[in-house]
Amino acid sequence: MRWWARARALRLSPAVFVAVQLGAVLGTGLPDLPFPALLGGSSLGVPLTFVLALVPVWTLMHGRARVDARQEAVAVRPVGHYDRLVQVVLVACAAAAAAVLHGAGAWQLAWAFPRDFAGYLGIAGLASAVTGARYAAVAPTLFMMLAATTGSAPDGRIHRWAWCLASPGDPLAAGVALALFVAGLAGVGGLVFGRLRVG
């Protein structure tokens, strides 16, 4: 397991994760990041939290891209389960931190961070079936940019599909994010897109 952790550069991801979550909490006072509206919607101010949740996904995918997936596929140890465990633990940590911060009334956007993190991870997991882990993190990034630039109606309402920008209490958005996360974990991407694999 120690070799696995080193190969994954696993010290990086939790460190980045903690730093990012701290940044998201401390950054609540900062102004929202304005995104230009591209398709006639209204220009959105996206809170830093929604964007920062992407960064740990990049580092996790970097960790998975460092090794040869074909070699690992025949490993004796359940390396795939280790990877899933890390993802579940990080999402659980984010949720626990959110619960504490929300309970303390310290952070209004508390629940948005674990939701977006889990959803982005799910998209990256699904995409990695096609592109390989090395290029998978581009998918949630692109999705976030698309949602931020085209995900709002002219009256400022956020479209349902742009779940990552919904208000933290939106149950549908949370459900979509959770479903994506589970699908990514379960390797649904491999089942659906396995034949398309390019990476």
Binding site: L33, R66, A137
Partner: peptide, 19 residues
Amino acid sequence: PVAISLPAALLGSFWCVGF
């Protein structure tokens, strides 16, 4: 590493030119 630089370049450059 490319797993980080690709999304970072994508998002970062969009940001710098749009914001």
